[in-house]
Design a protein around this nucleic acid. Sequence first.
DNA 1: ACCTGAACACCGTTCAAGT
DNA 2: ACCTGAACACCGTTCAAGT
Lengths: 234, 234
Amino acid sequence: MVSDADPITTERVPLSKTRVLEAAMGLADRTGIETLTMRNLAQELGVEAMSLYYHVANKEALLDGLVDSLLAEIEHERGDFEVVQDQAGWLPTMRNLILTARTVMLRHPWAPRVIESRTTMTPTLLRYFNALLGIMIEGGFSNDLGHHAMHALGSRALGFNQELFEPDNTDQGDEEAEAMMADLGPQLPYLMGMLAEVVHDDPDTTLGWCDDQTEFEFGLDLLLTGLEARRASR
Amino acid sequence: MVSDADPITTERVPLSKTRVLEAAMGLADRTGIETLTMRNLAQELGVEAMSLYYHVANKEALLDGLVDSLLAEIEHERGDFEVVQDQAGWLPTMRNLILTARTVMLRHPWAPRVIESRTTMTPTLLRYFNALLGIMIEGGFSNDLGHHAMHALGSRALGFNQELFEPDNTDQGDEEAEAMMADLGPQLPYLMGMLAEVVHDDPDTTLGWCDDQTEFEFGLDLLLTGLEARRASR
DNA sequence: ACCTGAACACCGTTCAAGT
DNA sequence: ACCTGAACACCGTTCAAGT
Protein backbone atom coordinates (compact mmCIF):
# COMPACT_ATOMS: atom_id res chain seq x y z
CA MET A 1 0.00 0.00 0.00
CA VAL A 2 1.28 3.40 -0.92
CA SER A 3 0.94 6.12 1.66
CA ASP A 4 -1.00 9.13 0.46
CA ALA A 5 1.35 11.38 2.33
CA ASP A 6 4.50 10.11 0.64
CA PRO A 7 5.15 11.96 -2.62
CA ILE A 8 8.53 10.25 -3.07
CA THR A 9 6.99 6.94 -4.09
CA THR A 10 7.19 6.72 -7.88
CA GLU A 11 3.80 4.99 -8.01
CA ARG A 12 2.23 8.31 -7.27
CA VAL A 13 3.41 10.25 -10.30
CA PRO A 14 0.28 11.22 -12.15
CA LEU A 15 -0.51 10.16 -15.67
CA SER A 16 0.47 12.36 -18.57
CA LYS A 17 0.43 11.99 -22.31
CA THR A 18 4.13 11.20 -22.43
CA ARG A 19 3.87 8.63 -19.66
CA VAL A 20 1.00 6.98 -21.51
CA LEU A 21 3.00 6.93 -24.73
CA GLU A 22 6.12 5.54 -23.07
CA ALA A 23 4.12 2.77 -21.47
CA ALA A 24 2.39 2.01 -24.77
CA MET A 25 5.74 1.80 -26.55
CA GLY A 26 7.13 -0.51 -23.88
CA LEU A 27 4.09 -2.75 -23.98
CA ALA A 28 4.14 -3.01 -27.78
CA ASP A 29 7.88 -3.71 -27.80
CA ARG A 30 7.65 -6.34 -25.11
CA THR A 31 4.49 -8.26 -25.89
CA GLY A 32 3.47 -7.23 -29.38
CA ILE A 33 1.10 -4.73 -30.90
CA GLU A 34 -1.92 -7.04 -30.62
CA THR A 35 -1.70 -6.91 -26.83
CA LEU A 36 -1.71 -3.13 -26.84
CA THR A 37 -5.31 -2.58 -25.81
CA MET A 38 -6.60 0.29 -23.77
CA ARG A 39 -7.36 -2.10 -20.93
CA ASN A 40 -3.91 -3.72 -20.92
CA LEU A 41 -2.20 -0.38 -21.16
CA ALA A 42 -4.18 0.95 -18.23
CA GLN A 43 -3.26 -2.08 -16.16
CA GLU A 44 0.40 -1.54 -17.03
CA LEU A 45 0.04 1.97 -15.61
CA GLY A 46 -1.89 0.84 -12.55
CA VAL A 47 -4.95 2.75 -13.55
CA GLU A 48 -8.42 2.14 -14.98
CA ALA A 49 -8.84 2.01 -18.76
CA MET A 50 -11.07 5.05 -18.76
CA SER A 51 -8.39 7.22 -17.21
CA LEU A 52 -6.39 7.01 -20.43
CA TYR A 53 -9.06 8.99 -22.23
CA TYR A 54 -8.23 11.99 -20.17
CA HIS A 55 -4.76 12.13 -21.74
CA VAL A 56 -5.35 10.77 -25.20
CA ALA A 57 -8.41 11.30 -27.34
CA ASN A 58 -8.84 7.67 -28.39
CA LYS A 59 -6.88 4.70 -29.59
CA GLU A 60 -6.20 6.21 -33.00
CA ALA A 61 -4.57 9.19 -31.34
CA LEU A 62 -2.52 6.84 -29.20
CA LEU A 63 -1.16 5.10 -32.30
CA ASP A 64 -0.43 8.45 -33.94
CA GLY A 65 1.52 9.38 -30.86
CA LEU A 66 3.46 6.14 -31.07
CA VAL A 67 4.53 6.90 -34.63
CA ASP A 68 5.57 10.38 -33.62
CA SER A 69 7.68 8.98 -30.75
CA LEU A 70 9.35 6.59 -33.13
CA LEU A 71 10.28 9.37 -35.52
CA ALA A 72 11.61 11.38 -32.61
CA GLU A 73 13.82 8.42 -31.78
CA ILE A 74 15.19 8.44 -35.32
CA GLU A 75 15.87 12.13 -35.05
CA HIS A 76 17.67 11.61 -31.76
CA GLU A 77 19.72 8.77 -33.25
CA ARG A 78 20.93 11.00 -36.07
CA GLY A 79 21.29 14.11 -33.92
CA ASP A 80 18.79 16.19 -35.87
CA PHE A 81 17.02 16.42 -39.21
CA GLU A 82 19.18 19.21 -40.55
CA VAL A 83 20.15 18.99 -44.19
CA VAL A 84 23.91 18.78 -44.12
CA GLN A 85 25.46 17.19 -47.14
CA ASP A 86 28.10 14.49 -47.00
CA GLN A 87 30.93 15.65 -49.21
CA ALA A 88 30.57 12.46 -51.22
CA GLY A 89 27.19 13.74 -52.43
CA TRP A 90 23.48 13.31 -51.86
CA LEU A 91 23.45 9.53 -52.23
CA PRO A 92 25.49 8.46 -49.22
CA THR A 93 23.87 11.17 -47.10
CA MET A 94 20.43 9.87 -47.93
CA ARG A 95 21.51 6.27 -47.64
CA ASN A 96 22.84 6.92 -44.14
CA LEU A 97 19.69 8.67 -42.99
CA ILE A 98 17.51 5.84 -44.25
CA LEU A 99 19.71 3.19 -42.68
CA THR A 100 19.59 5.10 -39.40
CA ALA A 101 15.82 5.05 -39.61
CA ARG A 102 16.06 1.33 -40.20
CA THR A 103 18.10 0.63 -37.08
CA VAL A 104 15.42 2.35 -35.03
CA MET A 105 12.62 0.50 -36.83
CA LEU A 106 14.31 -2.80 -36.05
CA ARG A 107 14.00 -2.06 -32.34
CA HIS A 108 10.24 -1.77 -32.72
CA PRO A 109 8.86 -4.70 -34.68
CA TRP A 110 5.34 -3.33 -34.55
CA ALA A 111 6.35 -0.13 -36.36
CA PRO A 112 5.75 -1.07 -40.02
CA ARG A 113 2.26 -2.34 -39.43
CA VAL A 114 1.28 0.62 -37.27
CA ILE A 115 2.74 3.15 -39.68
CA GLU A 116 0.91 1.61 -42.59
CA SER A 117 -2.35 1.72 -40.69
CA ARG A 118 -2.09 5.47 -40.08
CA THR A 119 -3.54 8.01 -42.44
CA THR A 120 -2.66 11.09 -40.47
CA MET A 121 0.46 13.14 -40.90
CA THR A 122 2.44 14.02 -37.82
CA PRO A 123 4.78 17.00 -37.45
CA THR A 124 7.88 14.89 -36.87
CA LEU A 125 7.15 12.85 -39.96
CA LEU A 126 6.81 16.00 -42.02
CA ARG A 127 10.20 17.13 -40.79
CA TYR A 128 11.68 13.75 -41.65
CA PHE A 129 10.33 13.91 -45.18
CA ASN A 130 11.53 17.49 -45.47
CA ALA A 131 15.03 16.30 -44.57
CA LEU A 132 14.99 13.52 -47.16
CA LEU A 133 13.73 15.84 -49.83
CA GLY A 134 16.21 18.53 -48.83
CA ILE A 135 19.10 16.14 -49.27
CA MET A 136 17.94 15.46 -52.81
CA ILE A 137 17.21 19.05 -53.73
CA GLU A 138 20.58 20.25 -52.43
CA GLY A 139 22.07 17.35 -54.36
CA GLY A 140 20.72 18.67 -57.63
CA PHE A 141 17.29 17.08 -57.94
CA SER A 142 14.39 18.94 -59.50
CA ASN A 143 11.27 19.17 -57.35
CA ASP A 144 9.61 16.82 -59.77
CA LEU A 145 12.26 14.13 -59.55
CA GLY A 146 12.38 14.51 -55.77
CA HIS A 147 8.65 14.02 -55.63
CA HIS A 148 8.79 10.88 -57.76
CA ALA A 149 11.67 9.63 -55.63
CA MET A 150 9.66 9.87 -52.42
CA HIS A 151 6.90 7.78 -53.95
CA ALA A 152 9.33 5.29 -55.44
CA LEU A 153 11.02 4.75 -52.10
CA GLY A 154 7.72 4.24 -50.32
CA SER A 155 8.11 2.56 -46.96
CA ARG A 156 11.80 2.09 -47.67
CA ALA A 157 12.25 5.80 -47.02
CA LEU A 158 11.41 5.02 -43.40
CA GLY A 159 13.80 2.11 -43.19
CA PHE A 160 11.57 -0.86 -43.72
CA ASN A 161 10.25 -2.83 -46.60
CA GLN A 162 6.94 -4.49 -45.97
CA GLU A 163 7.64 -8.16 -46.48
CA LEU A 164 4.85 -9.88 -48.31
CA PHE A 165 5.04 -13.01 -46.22
CA GLU A 166 6.78 -13.27 -42.93
CA PRO A 167 7.89 -16.44 -41.29
CA ASP A 168 5.46 -18.44 -39.25
CA ASN A 169 7.25 -18.84 -36.01
CA THR A 170 5.09 -21.80 -35.17
CA ASP A 171 6.57 -25.10 -36.33
CA GLN A 172 3.00 -25.96 -37.26
CA GLY A 173 2.92 -23.26 -39.89
CA ASP A 174 6.31 -24.28 -41.21
CA GLU A 175 5.26 -27.86 -41.63
CA GLU A 176 2.06 -26.90 -43.39
CA ALA A 177 3.96 -24.59 -45.70
CA GLU A 178 6.44 -27.32 -46.51
CA ALA A 179 3.68 -29.82 -47.19
CA MET A 180 2.07 -27.35 -49.58
CA MET A 181 5.38 -26.73 -51.31
CA ALA A 182 5.88 -30.45 -51.73
CA ASP A 183 2.40 -30.83 -53.26
CA LEU A 184 2.79 -27.92 -55.60
CA GLY A 185 6.45 -28.49 -56.37
CA PRO A 186 5.94 -29.85 -59.87
CA GLN A 187 3.94 -26.76 -60.81
CA LEU A 188 6.63 -24.43 -59.49
CA PRO A 189 9.84 -25.29 -61.30
CA TYR A 190 11.43 -21.85 -61.11
CA LEU A 191 10.64 -21.34 -57.46
CA MET A 192 11.91 -24.80 -56.53
CA GLY A 193 15.06 -24.25 -58.54
CA MET A 194 15.75 -20.93 -56.87
CA LEU A 195 15.10 -22.26 -53.40
CA ALA A 196 17.43 -25.18 -53.98
CA GLU A 197 20.21 -22.86 -54.99
CA VAL A 198 19.71 -19.72 -52.97
CA VAL A 199 18.22 -20.82 -49.70
CA HIS A 200 20.03 -24.07 -48.94
CA ASP A 201 22.87 -22.49 -47.01
CA ASP A 202 20.57 -20.77 -44.55
CA PRO A 203 18.51 -23.54 -42.95
CA ASP A 204 15.90 -21.43 -41.17
CA THR A 205 15.11 -19.38 -44.22
CA THR A 206 12.07 -20.32 -46.22
CA LEU A 207 10.39 -18.60 -49.12
CA GLY A 208 9.03 -15.23 -48.12
CA TRP A 209 11.42 -14.74 -45.29
CA CYS A 210 14.80 -13.37 -46.15
CA ASP A 211 14.36 -9.72 -45.27
CA ASP A 212 17.72 -9.24 -43.74
CA GLN A 213 19.88 -6.19 -44.08
CA THR A 214 21.29 -7.42 -47.38
CA GLU A 215 17.92 -7.53 -49.13
CA PHE A 216 16.96 -4.14 -47.78
CA GLU A 217 20.16 -2.55 -48.99
CA PHE A 218 19.95 -4.27 -52.37
CA GLY A 219 16.54 -2.74 -53.04
CA LEU A 220 17.53 0.62 -51.62
CA ASP A 221 20.66 0.84 -53.72
CA LEU A 222 18.79 -0.23 -56.84
CA LEU A 223 16.52 2.76 -56.35
CA LEU A 224 19.21 5.21 -55.33
CA THR A 225 21.47 4.42 -58.27
CA GLY A 226 18.51 4.63 -60.62
CA LEU A 227 17.66 8.04 -59.21
CA GLU A 228 21.24 9.21 -59.54
CA ALA A 229 21.23 8.25 -63.21
CA ARG A 230 18.09 10.31 -63.82
CA ARG A 231 19.40 13.27 -61.84
CA ALA A 232 22.65 13.31 -63.81
CA SER A 233 21.00 12.98 -67.23
CA ARG A 234 18.72 15.95 -67.14
CA MET B 1 -41.50 -16.37 -46.63
CA VAL B 2 -39.82 -19.08 -48.60
CA SER B 3 -41.70 -22.31 -49.01
CA ASP B 4 -39.81 -25.34 -47.80
CA ALA B 5 -41.18 -27.33 -50.72
CA ASP B 6 -39.86 -24.99 -53.40
CA PRO B 7 -36.26 -25.83 -54.34
CA ILE B 8 -36.28 -23.32 -57.20
CA THR B 9 -36.03 -20.32 -54.90
CA THR B 10 -32.42 -19.11 -54.95
CA GLU B 11 -32.60 -18.28 -51.25
CA ARG B 12 -32.42 -21.99 -50.57
CA VAL B 13 -29.03 -22.71 -52.08
CA PRO B 14 -26.93 -23.92 -49.20
CA LEU B 15 -23.80 -22.24 -48.01
CA SER B 16 -20.45 -23.33 -49.36
CA LYS B 17 -16.94 -22.07 -49.02
CA THR B 18 -17.05 -20.37 -52.41
CA ARG B 19 -20.40 -18.71 -51.67
CA VAL B 20 -18.98 -17.43 -48.39
CA LEU B 21 -15.89 -16.09 -50.14
CA GLU B 22 -17.87 -14.42 -52.91
CA ALA B 23 -20.10 -12.72 -50.38
CA ALA B 24 -17.10 -11.62 -48.34
CA MET B 25 -15.45 -10.16 -51.43
CA GLY B 26 -18.62 -8.30 -52.36
CA LEU B 27 -19.06 -6.94 -48.87
CA ALA B 28 -15.46 -5.75 -48.64
CA ASP B 29 -15.65 -4.14 -52.09
CA ARG B 30 -18.91 -2.40 -51.37
CA THR B 31 -18.61 -1.19 -47.80
CA GLY B 32 -14.95 -1.57 -46.86
CA ILE B 33 -12.84 -4.13 -45.10
CA GLU B 34 -13.67 -2.81 -41.63
CA THR B 35 -17.31 -3.80 -42.07
CA LEU B 36 -16.35 -7.33 -43.00
CA THR B 37 -17.19 -9.00 -39.70
CA MET B 38 -18.42 -12.53 -39.27
CA ARG B 39 -21.77 -11.19 -38.11
CA ASN B 40 -22.20 -8.79 -41.03
CA LEU B 41 -21.15 -11.43 -43.51
CA ALA B 42 -23.65 -13.90 -42.07
CA GLN B 43 -26.41 -11.32 -42.34
CA GLU B 44 -25.46 -10.71 -45.96
CA LEU B 45 -25.95 -14.44 -46.57
CA GLY B 46 -29.18 -14.62 -44.58
CA VAL B 47 -27.70 -16.93 -42.03
CA GLU B 48 -26.45 -16.88 -38.45
CA ALA B 49 -22.83 -15.93 -37.81
CA MET B 50 -22.02 -19.33 -36.39
CA SER B 51 -22.99 -21.09 -39.60
CA LEU B 52 -19.97 -19.59 -41.31
CA TYR B 53 -17.69 -21.64 -39.11
CA TYR B 54 -18.93 -24.77 -40.77
CA HIS B 55 -17.40 -23.64 -44.08
CA VAL B 56 -14.40 -21.66 -42.97
CA ALA B 57 -12.16 -22.41 -40.00
CA ASN B 58 -12.07 -18.87 -38.66
CA LYS B 59 -11.67 -15.29 -39.77
CA GLU B 60 -8.00 -15.70 -40.59
CA ALA B 61 -8.88 -18.49 -43.00
CA LEU B 62 -11.56 -16.28 -44.52
CA LEU B 63 -9.00 -13.57 -45.23
CA ASP B 64 -6.56 -16.10 -46.66
CA GLY B 65 -9.35 -17.24 -48.95
CA LEU B 66 -9.97 -13.68 -50.02
CA VAL B 67 -6.33 -13.24 -51.05
CA ASP B 68 -6.45 -16.48 -52.98
CA SER B 69 -9.58 -15.36 -54.82
CA LEU B 70 -7.89 -12.11 -55.73
CA LEU B 71 -4.88 -13.89 -57.17
CA ALA B 72 -7.21 -16.16 -59.12
CA GLU B 73 -8.76 -13.04 -60.58
CA ILE B 74 -5.33 -11.84 -61.70
CA GLU B 75 -4.66 -15.21 -63.28
CA HIS B 76 -7.97 -15.06 -65.10
CA GLU B 77 -7.27 -11.52 -66.30
CA ARG B 78 -3.99 -12.62 -67.85
CA GLY B 79 -5.30 -15.99 -69.06
CA ASP B 80 -2.86 -18.07 -67.06
CA PHE B 81 0.43 -17.91 -65.21
CA GLU B 82 2.44 -19.66 -67.90
CA VAL B 83 5.90 -18.31 -68.57
CA VAL B 84 5.75 -17.20 -72.17
CA GLN B 85 8.28 -14.58 -73.08
CA ASP B 86 7.47 -11.45 -74.99
CA GLN B 87 9.87 -11.27 -77.90
CA ALA B 88 11.02 -7.87 -76.64
CA GLY B 89 12.54 -9.60 -73.59
CA TRP B 90 11.88 -10.28 -69.95
CA LEU B 91 11.29 -6.66 -68.98
CA PRO B 92 8.09 -5.87 -70.86
CA THR B 93 6.73 -9.34 -70.08
CA MET B 94 7.21 -8.79 -66.39
CA ARG B 95 6.02 -5.23 -66.57
CA ASN B 96 2.80 -6.35 -68.23
CA LEU B 97 2.13 -9.04 -65.68
CA ILE B 98 2.65 -6.64 -62.80
CA LEU B 99 0.46 -3.99 -64.38
CA THR B 100 -2.24 -6.61 -64.92
CA ALA B 101 -2.04 -7.46 -61.25
CA ARG B 102 -2.40 -3.78 -60.54
CA THR B 103 -5.60 -3.36 -62.54
CA VAL B 104 -7.14 -6.15 -60.47
CA MET B 105 -5.86 -4.67 -57.20
CA LEU B 106 -7.45 -1.35 -58.08
CA ARG B 107 -10.85 -3.05 -58.18
CA HIS B 108 -10.40 -4.15 -54.58
CA PRO B 109 -9.23 -1.28 -52.41
CA TRP B 110 -8.98 -3.49 -49.34
CA ALA B 111 -6.43 -5.77 -51.00
CA PRO B 112 -3.14 -4.14 -49.97
CA ARG B 113 -4.01 -3.99 -46.32
CA VAL B 114 -5.35 -7.53 -46.21
CA ILE B 115 -2.38 -8.95 -48.12
CA GLU B 116 0.06 -7.25 -45.79
CA SER B 117 -1.74 -8.63 -42.76
CA ARG B 118 -1.38 -12.24 -43.98
CA THR B 119 1.54 -14.41 -43.05
CA THR B 120 0.40 -17.56 -44.77
CA MET B 121 1.33 -18.58 -48.29
CA THR B 122 -1.44 -19.65 -50.59
CA PRO B 123 -1.08 -21.94 -53.60
CA THR B 124 -2.18 -19.34 -56.11
CA LEU B 125 0.30 -16.85 -54.74
CA LEU B 126 3.10 -19.38 -55.06
CA ARG B 127 2.17 -19.89 -58.68
CA TYR B 128 2.15 -16.16 -59.25
CA PHE B 129 5.62 -15.77 -57.77
CA ASN B 130 6.79 -18.75 -59.78
CA ALA B 131 5.60 -16.98 -62.94
CA LEU B 132 7.40 -13.75 -62.08
CA LEU B 133 10.58 -15.59 -61.25
CA GLY B 134 10.28 -17.74 -64.37
CA ILE B 135 10.10 -14.66 -66.56
CA MET B 136 13.35 -13.45 -65.06
CA ILE B 137 15.16 -16.78 -65.18
CA GLU B 138 14.19 -17.37 -68.81
CA GLY B 139 15.31 -13.81 -69.43
CA GLY B 140 18.81 -14.60 -68.26
CA PHE B 141 18.73 -13.89 -64.51
CA SER B 142 20.72 -15.97 -62.07
CA ASN B 143 18.72 -17.49 -59.24
CA ASP B 144 20.47 -15.12 -56.90
CA LEU B 145 19.56 -12.00 -58.83
CA GLY B 146 16.01 -13.25 -59.28
CA HIS B 147 15.76 -13.74 -55.55
CA HIS B 148 17.02 -10.25 -54.79
CA ALA B 149 14.65 -8.88 -57.40
CA MET B 150 11.61 -10.40 -55.70
CA HIS B 151 12.57 -8.76 -52.43
CA ALA B 152 13.37 -5.46 -54.08
CA LEU B 153 10.00 -5.34 -55.78
CA GLY B 154 8.16 -6.14 -52.56
CA SER B 155 4.48 -5.28 -52.74
CA ARG B 156 5.04 -3.72 -56.15
CA ALA B 157 5.34 -7.24 -57.53
CA LEU B 158 1.65 -7.60 -56.74
CA GLY B 159 0.69 -4.34 -58.37
CA PHE B 160 0.48 -1.99 -55.45
CA ASN B 161 2.78 0.23 -53.50
CA GLN B 162 1.78 0.80 -49.92
CA GLU B 163 1.32 4.52 -49.67
CA LEU B 164 2.65 5.90 -46.45
CA PHE B 165 -0.14 8.38 -45.99
CA GLU B 166 -3.40 8.26 -47.81
CA PRO B 167 -5.80 11.13 -48.22
CA ASP B 168 -8.24 11.89 -45.49
CA ASN B 169 -11.49 11.94 -47.34
CA THR B 170 -13.06 13.98 -44.60
CA ASP B 171 -12.77 17.72 -45.17
CA GLN B 172 -12.08 17.85 -41.44
CA GLY B 173 -8.87 15.92 -41.86
CA ASP B 174 -7.83 18.06 -44.78
CA GLU B 175 -8.32 21.24 -42.85
CA GLU B 176 -6.36 19.95 -39.89
CA ALA B 177 -3.56 18.84 -42.16
CA GLU B 178 -3.46 22.23 -43.84
CA ALA B 179 -3.41 24.02 -40.50
CA MET B 180 -0.50 21.87 -39.42
CA MET B 181 1.33 22.55 -42.67
CA ALA B 182 0.82 26.26 -42.21
CA ASP B 183 2.19 26.11 -38.67
CA LEU B 184 5.20 24.05 -39.61
CA GLY B 185 5.79 25.68 -42.96
CA PRO B 186 8.84 27.69 -41.93
CA GLN B 187 10.53 24.51 -40.71
CA LEU B 188 9.81 22.69 -43.95
CA PRO B 189 11.34 24.76 -46.75
CA TYR B 190 12.01 21.89 -49.13
CA LEU B 191 8.60 20.32 -48.70
CA MET B 192 6.84 23.66 -49.15
CA GLY B 193 8.90 24.40 -52.21
CA MET B 194 8.11 21.08 -53.80
CA LEU B 195 4.42 21.32 -53.04
CA ALA B 196 4.25 24.77 -54.56
CA GLU B 197 5.79 23.54 -57.78
CA VAL B 198 4.62 19.97 -58.16
CA VAL B 199 1.18 19.86 -56.66
CA HIS B 200 -0.38 23.16 -57.61
CA ASP B 201 -1.85 21.94 -60.88
CA ASP B 202 -3.81 19.16 -59.22
CA PRO B 203 -6.02 20.86 -56.66
CA ASP B 204 -7.21 17.80 -54.73
CA THR B 205 -3.75 16.40 -54.30
CA THR B 206 -2.02 17.01 -51.01
CA LEU B 207 1.23 15.67 -49.65
CA GLY B 208 1.13 11.93 -49.22
CA TRP B 209 -1.50 11.37 -51.80
CA CYS B 210 -0.36 11.12 -55.36
CA ASP B 211 -0.30 7.38 -55.89
CA ASP B 212 -1.65 7.40 -59.35
CA GLN B 213 -0.56 5.16 -62.16
CA THR B 214 2.32 7.48 -63.01
CA GLU B 215 4.00 7.17 -59.63
CA PHE B 216 3.55 3.43 -59.61
CA GLU B 217 5.11 3.04 -63.02
CA PHE B 218 7.96 5.41 -62.20
CA GLY B 219 8.99 3.29 -59.24
CA LEU B 220 8.46 0.05 -61.10
CA ASP B 221 10.55 1.16 -64.06
CA LEU B 222 13.31 2.43 -61.80
CA LEU B 223 13.59 -1.06 -60.35
CA LEU B 224 13.21 -2.91 -63.64
CA THR B 225 15.85 -0.88 -65.45
CA GLY B 226 18.18 -1.27 -62.49
CA LEU B 227 17.69 -5.01 -62.59
CA GLU B 228 18.28 -5.13 -66.33
CA ALA B 229 21.60 -3.33 -65.84
CA ARG B 230 22.72 -5.91 -63.29
CA ARG B 231 21.54 -8.83 -65.38
CA ALA B 232 23.45 -7.57 -68.41
CA SER B 233 26.66 -6.82 -66.54
CA ARG B 234 27.33 -10.21 -65.04
C1' DA C 1 -7.97 18.66 -12.63
C1' DC C 2 -7.83 14.05 -12.70
C1' DC C 3 -9.67 9.46 -12.18
C1' DT C 4 -13.43 5.76 -11.88
C1' DG C 5 -17.82 2.42 -12.24
C1' DA C 6 -21.21 0.95 -14.72
C1' DA C 7 -22.93 0.37 -18.99
C1' DC C 8 -23.29 0.12 -24.21
C1' DA C 9 -22.54 -1.69 -28.56
C1' DC C 10 -19.71 -4.20 -30.60
C1' DC C 11 -16.02 -8.26 -31.73
C1' DG C 12 -14.45 -13.59 -32.71
C1' DT C 13 -15.32 -18.03 -31.10
C1' DT C 14 -16.91 -22.54 -28.40
C1' DC C 15 -20.00 -25.84 -27.50
C1' DA C 16 -24.00 -28.36 -26.97
C1' DA C 17 -28.10 -28.75 -29.31
C1' DG C 18 -31.34 -28.86 -33.00
C1' DT C 19 -33.03 -30.69 -37.91
C1' DA D 1 -24.47 -32.86 -43.08
C1' DC D 2 -25.59 -28.48 -42.08
C1' DC D 3 -27.26 -24.77 -39.19
C1' DT D 4 -28.45 -22.34 -34.65
C1' DG D 5 -28.91 -20.24 -29.56
C1' DA D 6 -26.86 -19.13 -25.78
C1' DA D 7 -22.87 -17.96 -23.73
C1' DC D 8 -17.88 -16.51 -23.03
C1' DA D 9 -14.14 -13.54 -23.07
C1' DC D 10 -12.84 -9.97 -25.04
C1' DC D 11 -12.83 -4.96 -27.56
C1' DG D 12 -13.23 0.68 -27.71
C1' DT D 13 -15.89 4.18 -25.86
C1' DT D 14 -19.63 7.32 -23.34
C1' DC D 15 -21.32 9.41 -19.59
C1' DA D 16 -22.41 10.61 -15.11
C1' DA D 17 -20.20 10.52 -10.93
C1' DG D 18 -16.66 10.70 -7.54
C1' DT D 19 -12.32 13.21 -5.18
